[in-house]
Amino acid sequence: MASVDWNALAAKSRRSRRWKNGLLIGFLTLVSVPILLPFFWMVVISVTARTGGVEAAVLWLACAVLVPATCAYGAAHLALPHPRARIIAGGVIAAAAALGLWALVGDQLHLHNYRFLVNSNLVEDIRGAATAGGQFPWVWTAFGNSLLVASVSTALKVIVATLAGYYLSRFAFRGRSGFLQGLLILEVFHPWMLTIPIFLVIYWVGLLNTLTGPILVLTAIDLPFFIFIMKGFFDAVPWDIEMSAMTDGASRRQAFRMVVLPQVRAGLIAIAVLGFIKGWEEYVFVTALRTGNSYWVMSTYLYYVAEDVMGVDYGLVAAVSVFYMIPSLALYLWCQRYLTQMTMGGVKG
C-alpha cells in the first residue's frame, strides 16, 4: 500500500469539521432570525411604547446589545471547555448586556402598557364610558375563562384518551380492528373541516353561548390523535410487567392503575401539555360557538383589543399579547422534552 500522508488528512478533517459546524450554525441562525425578531419586537413594544407611538430605534438598540452578547457567549462557550468557567463567562456577559441595555434604552422602559392588569374599566378609560357600555370585560375574567376551558378540556382529554388508548392497546375484543380503522379515518377529519356541522349540533343541544360547548368540542376534536398517541405509549410498555402484576394477584384494572399507568407518565404529560396549549390558544371554536359576546376568553379578548378597541395603541396590544403568551410558552419550555417523545409515539401508530 502506498504511503499515506496522515498529517494532511488530519488537517483536512479539522478544517472540514470546523467549516461544517460553522456553516450549520450560521445557516440555522440566519433562518431563525425571522422567527425570533417579531416576538422580540413585541416584547420591546410592550415595555417601551407610549400612547400609540412605536419607537423602532429601541428595537435596534436592544439588538445592538444582545446580538454581540450572544456572539460573545458563543465564542466563550467554544473557548472554555470547563462548565464552571462557562457559567461565570455567561454571568459576566449577561451582566454586561444588562448594563448596556440599561444605558441605551433604560430611560424608555416603563410598565404603563400593562395597566390593563389592574384597571377593570380599560375601555371606558380610553374611549369614554358611553361607547362600550361595560360590555368589554376585565382581562382577569377572560383569563379565568380561558384557564377553565383549557384545564377542563385537558383533564377530559387526558382521562378519556388514556382509558381508550389502554383498552385499544391491551384488550382483545370483537371489532377491535374495525374500531382502530375507524379511528384512523376520524383522525383524518381535521376539526376545522367540521366547524359548521359541529356548530349545528351544539346549537340543537342547546349549549350555544355556554363555556360547556367549547370545552366538549375541544375535548372531542383532539381525541383520535391523542388516543393513538396513548396507544403508542401503552404498546411500548412490556407485556411481562403486566403479566407478572397479574400473577402477583392484581386484576387487570389494578394492573393498569398500579403498574402500567406509571410507565406512560411521559405520554400523559405530553398530551396534557399539548391539550392545554391547544385549549389556551383556541380561537375558531370559541368564536364559532357563541353569538354576540356571551363569554370572553383570552383569544377573543386580544382579538377585540387589537381590532376594535384601540387598534393604534400598539403598546397596549403588545402588552396583552405578551400576557396572553406567557402561560403557554412557559408550559412549553418547561415540558419540551416530553413533547419530542410524543411525536415518536404518535407517528408510529
Binding site: F179, L200, A220, P224
Partner: peptide
C-alpha cells in the same frame, strides 16, 4: 371493561365527530 375504558371515548367521538359528519351530509 369496555364501558369503563372505551365508553367515554365512544360518546365523545360519536356525538361530536361522527354525528356532525352525517349532519353535514344532510344539511
Amino acid at each position: 371493561n369496555a364501558l369503563v375504558f372505551l365508553g367515554p371515548a365512544c360518546v365523545f367521538l360519536l356525538c361530536l365527530l361522527v354525528i356532525p359528519i352525517f349532519v353535514d351530509l344532510v344539511v
